[in-house]
Design a binder for these strands. Structure first.
Lengths: 356, 356
DNA sequence: CTACGTTAAGCAAACGTTTGCACCACGACC
DNA sequence: GGTCGTGGTGCAAACGTTTGCTTAACGTAG
């Protein structure tokens, strides 16, 4: 088969299915203009460079062919990808889907596409994902997997990678951040319990050494207790090794075995709250009759548990939306010094708390 | 400023930050070879074309510069993006994160990246997302948002877009599909209830007209009842308008108001099961003492409800993994006629079912 | 009537890869 | 000792855009 035949066949193949992506060259040919002119006509900000009538012809040609610009080619030339990397610990954890959803929606509005990766809280895995996403030329990152000390984030910051922390912060405070006013959240929980007459209030926190969320809630607990004039010292505080039911149970049990008999518990999150519930059941006490429990995050179905869990609701979705918006702003070149945005949580009172 | 100076400055600027992505040209220069040779040395399948010693030099140069190939440029040339579009109804629905996670993991293994979009079961929104993803040159789709009749999918199929349905099928059966053996799942539920001595077994299904999952579970219910020699006719079957607690409650209440008094209910999914639980409570009956209830999907915390919900567990994660694998196989050009893969569900017995 | 500014459009070079083809030694074969 | 492969390498043309520069056409002013 000679070259001409081969080419013809090749062209035929490419032309036959009407879904074959048409190119700017096709549009230009149909409109009878140069590809450069077509490019200008189709771009919003340089549309004024072509005569209205030509612009119209190009539009029609594009519409006829169902032309959609190839973002790959465009990206190669402009060095922009209109993609954002999203680093999340685990999509399977119900805490994160609403955040991701918020990011998705905010990005979609302006033509950006998120590239999401799960880190499993594993620094090595995270680094790999980060590199892969950078290789794909994402224009910035929303990071929801931060630890209080986080070398990767420090490096990225130093390199000037546009980056916004979501939900979890770093101690240094050197990054743009959108998170929850955890202290206010736990304060609402403590105030609620105090109003119900509780004085012996315990806190079963999360992994305070690693995660800002756990840490802030602990700090918030101590502060709120002090403000209420109550004893918020070590004997009523324990920490779960992770935000899980089992670790919560273990930590609570440890507290109970120390002889402490709190009438109420503020938990680091809802899973820890469930663990606490198990632990007090194990020693024959009941919630809420003997011990009130307040969770954190207000996860799905928290209202259907037995008893329905009083919990601090946080604005997951808005957290995602704001994170994306702040990042886009940064990419647009606005803002100079890092800013931290605190979103307000809201206590939801249910059956797991009761007056003493 | 003359051109030479300008160019030099430009180069300096590009070189200064050591995170500036280095290009194949840089690698080639350092290794003292042509960029074509460098390209070949770095590609696994054409590495044999260059001498081992040259290949080594190129490797070293690449390592030194921390070179990572630009997938955008590569994609432009090869017409491949190494991305897959994932269409999911709503990430916020706990059913989908494990599926997406399975897809992510399976794709990551072979260097692909998923581009995920939420459809909200809205056909127009879905079409937009589909177009956006196609414009981004995804190489194929995993679609978890299928309706039994689905014009968009039919069109995509007709156009030859590589596409795999996940979880939800289309009636036509013309698409490659990875889903759950719903009939077997509901059969396990019915058999379990029958073994407990139940004879009056109701089914509160989902939106059977639109979704294959709801439809198959209904069909499965009828078949299982027939096999057990029981009456599975209309008077004990109702359908919720959607897979929600509220719609489940309404449908169940309707059944009860018709005078029916089943001793057991198989629900279309866990949320409907919760609605049923509410409905029977409203008329003063209790679960499981008066009515046993079996859910479907075994959603997170189903084991912590009151009573813990007996439910049919489906392999979400594996569903995602297999969907991705099948799609990759298709893209690689393997397989010709559409195949449907059925993954096995597994009943998990808990407190919401009891012997009569 | 020439010169000049302005507007619209085209030309061509990039962006960072991949890949068909040409080239060049070099050893082997007739 | 020419002629052939053959293995290694380089050259240059793509891929589909964007964009700086140039050209063409057309008024308008001097």
């Amino acid at each position: 088969m000679d070259a001409a035949v081969c080419n013809r066949l090749h062209n035929d193949l490419r032309m036959t299915p009407d879904h074959a992506q048409s190119t700017l060259r096709d549009v230009a040919r149909i409109a009878g203009v140069n590809v450069a002119t077509a490019s200008r006509a189709l771009s919003s900000d340089r549309r004024g460079m072509v005569s209205p009538e030509t612009a119209k012809r190009v539009d029609e040609a594009a519409a006829e062919l169902g032309y959609r610009a190839n973002p790959i080619a465009r990206g190669l030339k402009t060095n922009r990808s209109f993609t954002i990397g999203v680093l999340v610990p685990d999509l399977t954890n119900p805490l994160y889907p609403p955040i991701v959803r918020g990011i998705d929606d905010a990005l979609a509005r302006v033509g950006y596409t998120p590239l999401t990766a799960n880190t499993d809280n594993d620094l090595e895995r995270e680094r790999t994902s980060f590199e892969v996403l950078r290789a794909r030329r994402v224009e910035g990152f929303v990071v929801a997997s931060a630890f209080r000390e986080h070398p990767l984030i420090d490096e990225a910051l130093a390199e000037g990678v546009p980056l916004v922390l979501s939900l979890r912060r770093i101690d240094a405070g050197t990054a743009w951040t959108v998170c929850v006013d955890e202290r206010a959240g736990i304060a609402q929980a403590v105030d609620h319990l105090v109003a119900l007459g509780h004085r012996e209030i315990a806190h079963i926190g999360g992994p305070v050494a690693e995660m800002s969320t756990a840490h802030e809630r602990h700090i918030g607990f101590l502060a709120s207790m002090a403000v209420a004039g109550l004893n918020g010292t070590q004997e009523l505080v324990r920490f779960a090794a992770a935000f899980t039911i089992e670790d919560g149970r273990v930590a609570c049990r440890e507290l109970l075995e120390s002889g402490a008999r709190p009438t109420a518990i503020t938990a680091g999150n809802d899973l820890i709250a469930l663990g606490c519930s198990d632990a007090i059941a194990e020693i024959g006490l009941r919630c809420p009759e003997d011990v009130s429990i307040v969770g954190y995050n207000d996860m799905p179905l928290a209202d259907r548990l037995a008893p329905p869990l009083t919990s601090v609701q946080i604005p997951h979705y808005e957290l995602g939306v704001r994170s994306a918006e702040v990042l886009l702003d940064r990419i647009a070149g606005n803002g100079s010094i890092p800013r931290t945005e605190l979103l307000a949580p809201q206590l939801v009172v249910r059956g797991s708390t009761r007056a003493i």
